[in-house]
Design a protein around this nucleic acid. Structure first.
Lengths: 138, 138
DNA sequence: TATGACGTTTACGTTAACGTAAAGTTATAA
DNA sequence: TTATAACTTTACGTTAACGTAAACGTCATA
């Protein structure tokens, strides 16, 4: 028998409220067991929650996050189902790739800008030859 | 005099509605010129809109996107301001890096899963030796 | 036994980010 | 000159994703 978690455990760990976790359950994204009326979360439930929250951080809606999760526990029974699953995975992969590219280009331009700011700061701190864009004239 | 754009031009290009663009203006993120009462967008306005939308795609709220944009046209007058700006840039950079890492780990596990699905599919298509996890026994 | 601490359900409230409709303005085309 | 296409403002409506409050259950412990 493996580890279990209370709703407060997961709320603490992932820095969300119990309300949020219950909401995801109401949306059909989690289905913890019950000990009496209390929710008992398995390590698998915990992974699912982590997936949801990572999806959200990446700008997916809960509906989109749900689609992704459903892919991960889709039945791989027959070949037909598997082909459909593989196709859908490719779609989600493309969406993720796009986000990564967005992040990378944003990082690139931001780093570029930060470098220019630092150069400008050094100019200001070294006596500073009045205007910017001045070469190092001896 | 450089190119200008109507609100419909930008709406088409970025696949949003004019309402959305006006909303961003009302939120203080865009300030197009006016020819009469009509909005006239500069290439710079267009870049700003692109920044907003990329931010949104990455899961930033409009408020966060606004902060980033304000960094990009902050005054770099004195050294003190520049230092503050550089600090804030580092913060936003960290947030972006985190998103990129999220995207990358999501991609990695998804690719992993997709590969396993494809393996399973090939098994099914090649006569299929009953169960999974069977080596290629001669 | 009573008093927290932690959980539950139910239900209404809130906010961001727009959608949508109404009514008016302005330039161009027929 | 009228129509129509593209724009404008104003203002109320909508949806996702929770927040918040009320009223209740249940277990350990002081």
């Amino acid at each position: 028998m493996s580890e279990t978690f209370s709703i407060a455990d997961l709320a603490r760990e992932f820095e969300v409220t119990p309300r949020t976790i219950r909401y995801y359950e109401a949306e059909g994204m989690l289905a913890p067991e019950r000990r009496g009326q209390r929710r008992v979360y398995s390590p698998r439930d915990r992974v699912t929650l982590a997936l949801i929250l990572r999806g959200k951080r990446l700008g997916f809606s809960l509906a989109e996050a749900k689609e992704i999760i459903e892919l991960y526990d889709a039945p791989q029974g027959e070949a037909g189902q598997l082909k459909v699953l593989i196709d859908k995975l490719a779609d989600k992969r493309d969406a993720l790739e796009a986000k990564r590219r967005d992040a990378e280009s944003a990082l690139a331009s931001m780093d570029d800008y930060a470098t220019r700011c630092q150069d400008r700061l050094k100019e200001l701190e070294n006596g500073a030859e009045s205007s910017a864009h001045e070469g190092s004239n001896s």
